[in-house]
Design a protein around this nucleic acid. Structure first.
Lengths: 185, 185
DNA sequence: GTGCACATGTAATGTGTTACATGATTAT
DNA sequence: ATAATCATGTAACACATTACATGTGCAC
């Protein structure tokens, strides 16, 4: 079987926080800040079936039709699922993660509470800071190189926007690291 | 035929700037700040064929094998392709664009130079600012609501990171707007 | 003459999107 | 009664990813 998609991790992480139905998860995706995930049934329900096939979640169907005629089924995380989530959030943060999968990194961070000790979260932020600052350095160098060759244009300004977004993320990582290490003392 | 993908617009935009081969485009994706696009041949070459089928680009193959035994083919933009690119960058910036397609927005901005007058670029930045500030306001409200209910956790901090990223983008849009309107005077 | 960069492609696969489909419950 | 929401699913489709495949030119 294939590597789980980001969507699958998002679903598993939410289910671990609280057992819930596919419909509940769709509502979370459509109404909260997690709205950049699609809430279409064609993505959610197959992803839940895949998680079930992996043994990461189990479906608790209502005993009989009378108990819940809407055939709502609550999913709960399994021991295996929780172990896999822990392994996922504990992965080393690479440069590639920072370049191509920054939103998955944020998702991992969001799920760290109550599943891994604070030290893991701090290490994650350290690795994120290292990866981001290295990449921002590369991009800044690229920006200077281009800027000296060609006059100011929208392409260059777009690059600047991307760099500033990364710098904001880097700044957040540093502040958050400081904040969390203070609280945990 | 389906709506063109972001990749197709990226390729068409680059080809409009300078006629080039599929391999050149792959190199651009793998070595420049556009590296978040995949440089895999399995995505690039089919996308170029789709653009050709749409009539947005034309392939200039070498006259004979002797001229270029590497059968390199240069693509150039057509009148139709350029018109479609102009229509694309001129689209009204919606809230949905800001929420789900921010990287496509940046791509549109990057390609505006020398294809639409400065006034269009300024209008784009105005619309972007409106869309972003509205959405940032929503997210800030959501953040305050959650923060008053639950204690500080990584989920909330992740949301804050996303908000700050948007605020950085918003700030960039305002500064860039000011900068461009000054230069154009 | 071996390896690397050039240059273009195909095939299998999987996932997300869109649209369609079904049926129960609640509100107006 | 009629619409909206609850609740879950399937089918068609297209795209990106990965791996594989082919052959040229150049450098060492």
């Amino acid at each position: 079987m294939n590597a789980p998609s980001t969507l699958e991790f998002a679903l598993a992480g939410l289910i671990r926080q609280k057992p819930q139905s596919g419909y509940d998860l769709r509502k979370t995706f459509s109404t909260t800040a997690m709205r950049h995930f699609s809430d279409s049934p064609g993505s959610i329900y197959p992803a839940l079936r895949r998680l079930e096939a992996r043994g990461w979640i189990v479906a608790h169907s209502p005993a009989d039709r009378a108990a819940d005629p809407r055939r709502r089924q609550a999913f709960a995380i399994t021991v295996e699922g929780e172990a896999q989530l822990i392994a996922w959030v504990c992965r080393t943060v690479t440069r590639d993660d920072a370049v191509w999968r920054s939103q998955e990194l944020l998702l991992r961070f969001a799920f760290m509470d109550s599943i891994v000790p604070r030290t893991v979260t701090l290490r994650f932020l350290d690795q994120l800071e290292a990866a981001l600052s290295a990449y921002v350095g590369e991009l800044r160098a690229e920006f200077r190189r281009s800027g000296s060759q060609i006059p100011l244009n929208t392409g260059l300004l777009a690059l600047e926007s991307g760099i500033e977004g990364m710098e904001a993320h880097l700044d957040w990582a540093r502040r958050t690291r400081a904040q969390l290490s203070e609280v945990s003392r």
